[in-house]
Structures are given as structure tokens and as C-alpha cells.
């Protein structure tokens, strides 16, 4: 019987094998971890987006989520801790035909890599960042993260975390991202849609995935299995697309406000580069003249800088 089952599993091809590296399975993640769902929704999202897999690249940093790149059958780059975004920026700018995703964790993207995230959002460079937020450093054994809720326990906060956590969607929106959304791993369908939207949207897109970590975060705090945590997400989550992303921080027990908070069209980094060159070349016949007249150029007055949600 057991043999028979194995045979059936072996013969039947996996529905996602065109995008997963089946030769690397099983993956390293714990049972109950949200990363499996996150990867599944990502694959579904890509399929839905209709982008060319050959022209899609994925870049990860270090950590549990940092391993995502290694399981996806795309051009995949597993870089250093915190540096996935600048790496992806270089990749995208050097080949603008690519669709570039960064898939990494909250510690990687907002602690060690926090500066890169806000600057990439400010530049509106055309990459998509997916942040799996599990409120803790999982791979290294449960240390404090910049997302760990106030008062929560971690292995480096044995008396409870005494730092205010970052509100990731608020930070991304305030920094100028073109698209900002938050979902939990319990929102598979909506998350899939968000990933498809980001894949086809120009500019800097940011998606936070609130994800359960049963092995360390739950064990040190409320306890429970991955499934328990998912159920908890379902009861705590509300969907409000009109919410101000800067006003919806997460804590241990408040509402998890989900939705697409920002979806705007702003000129991207590369569009601004092209516009700037065109503008200067039309005005001046040579470099020297351009240099000596640099102060006379007036900035366009109609340029809008907005990051608010009411659009």
C-alpha cells in the first residue's frame, strides 16, 4: 500500500513543477511554516500574471525566506544578508526586459537591509519586493526582529521586546512605493492577485505577507501550531483597501488590516533618467554649455509627489 502511494506520487507530476526545482525538494522549512503557502501563491501569481518565466528573475537575501530563490525554477540569486534589493536594482537596470522579484524576510529587508528598501522605494525602481513577515529571526533561532511586537518574547528579548516595531506597509508607502499591499498567508487568493498585479505593474511594488512561525515565534509567545496561527490570522484580519498604511501597525493581538493600500502610477527611476537626458540634450548643444547653465533650468512645477492612499 505504502509502495503504491509512493508510486502514484512519483508518477503524477507536480502541478507547479514548471516553476519549482523539484530536484531540490523536500525544502528546509518547518512544518506549519507560512513559506510554503507564500511560495505557492507566488507561483500562482506568476502564472496569473502571464509573464515569461525565462524573463523573470528572483533575488533573495539571507534567512528562512532567503531560501525561496533556491526553490524556484527561474533565474535565481541568493545574495548576502540585506542586499537583495540593491542587487535586484542592478539586475533590473542592466536588463530592463526582466521582471525582477525580491523575496525575503522582515529581518533581511527591514533591519540589515532597511536603508536599501526605503531608497529603492524613493527611486521607484521597477522591482517587486515580497516581504514575508513572521515577526522574528527564524533561521538563527528566534532572535528579535525589527517587526517583533512590543512586549513579545524572543531569544534576545527574554524579558519581552522593548522596541517599537516597524509598520512595514507604512514605511514602504511613506518612502514612495507605487504599489503597497498587505495580506496574510490565509489570504491565498487575494495574495495571488496582488502578486500578479505587482508583476505587471511598473515602479516599486511592495507586498507584505504576514506569516506564521510556529517553531520559534509561537513557541516563545502564544503557542500553537501553524494551523492554529492561520486560524488566528483569519479571526484578526480585516480587509480595508482605504486604510492609511501608516496607521495600521501590527501588534500581538490587534486587527491585522489587510488590503491594497497604494496603487499609483509614478514615473520610474528609468523613465526619469530618460526624461532627464532628453530634456538636457534638447536644451543645450554641448556639455560645456550645459554645465555653465545648470542653474537656469527650472524644475517642472506640475510634478506631483504623492504617497497618500486617497487616489
Amino acid at each position: 500500500m505504502a509502495n503504491n502511494t509512493a508510486q502514484i506520487i512519483q508518477e503524477k507530476s507536480h502541478p507547479m513543477e514548471d516553476l519549482l526545482r523539484m530536484d531540490r525538494m523536500p525544502h528546509i522549512w518547518c512544518s506549519g511554516c507560512g513559506l510554503g503557502s507564500a511560495v505557492t501563491t507566488f507561483v500562482e501569481g506568476l502564472k496569473k500574471a502571464g509573464v515569461s518565466y525565462d524573463k523573470t528573475a528572483i533575488v533573495s537575501g539571507i534567512g528562512c525566506t532567503g531560501r525561496v530563490a533556491g526553490y524556484l525554477r527561474l533565474d535565481s540569486y541568493h545574495t548576502t544578508h540585506g542586499r537583495a534589493i540593491p542587487f535586484a536594482t542592478g539586475l533590473k537596470l542592466a536588463n530592463r526586459d526582466l521582471t525582477v522579484f525580491v523575496f525575503s524576510g522582515d529581518g533581511d529587508l527591514f533591519a540589515i537591509g532597511g536603508n536599501h528598501l526605503i531608497h529603492a522605494a524613493r527611486r521607484n525602481v521597477d522591482i517587486n519586493v515580497i516581504c514575508v513577515n513572521n515577526f522574528i529571526y527564524g533561521m538563527t533561532g528566534g532572535q528579535n526582529a525589527p517587526t517583533t511586537p512590543l512586549g513579545a518574547y524572543s531569544s534576545t528579548a527574554p524579558y519581552g521586546n522593548y522596541e517599537m516595531p516597524f509598520n512595514l506597509v507604512g514605511l514602504a508607502a511613506a518612502s514612495g512605493a507605487s504599489y503597497v499591499a498587505r495580506w496574510t498567508t490565509a489570504h491565498a487568493r487575494r495574495l495571488t492577485n496582488s502578486i500578479a498585479t505587482a508583476a505587471n505593474k511598473k515602479g516599486f511594488c511592495f507586498i507584505e505577507i504576514v506569516s506564521p512561525c510556529a517553531t520559534v515565534f509561537a513557541r516563545k509567545n502564544m503557542g500553537g501550531t501553524g494551523l492554529d496561527l492561520l486560524k488566528e490570522f483569519q479571526t484578526r484580519a480585516i480587509i480595508d483597501h482605504d486604510a492609511d498604511p501608516t496607521q495600521i501597525p501590527l501588534s500581538m493581538d490587534n486587527e491585522i488590516v489587510c488590503g491594497e493600500f497604494v496603487n499609483e502610477d509614478r514615473p520610474t527611476f528609468w523613465e526619469n533618467v530618460q526624461g532627464g537626458i532628453k530634456n538636457r540634450l534638447e536644451k543645450f548643444s554641448n556639455w560645456e554649455e550645459m554645465q555653465s547653465n545648470s542653474r537656469k533650468i527650472t524644475h517642472k512645477k506640475d510634478r506631483k509627489y504623492t504617497s497618500s492612499i486617497d487616489v
Binding site: 548576502t80 542586499r83 534589493i85 540593491p86 535586484a88 542592478g90 537596470l93 542592466a94 536588463n95 526582466l98
Partner: peptide, 12 residues
């Protein structure tokens, strides 16, 4: 970021 970026560009 500069160093990470030129590695990314190199892969492209």
C-alpha cells in the same frame, strides 16, 4: 548597495 548592484548588473 553599490557593490551588490554591480554584481546584479554583471549577472544581467
Amino acid at each position: 548597495a553599490s557593490m551588490a548592484g554591480i554584481l546584479g548588473a554583471s549577472w544581467a
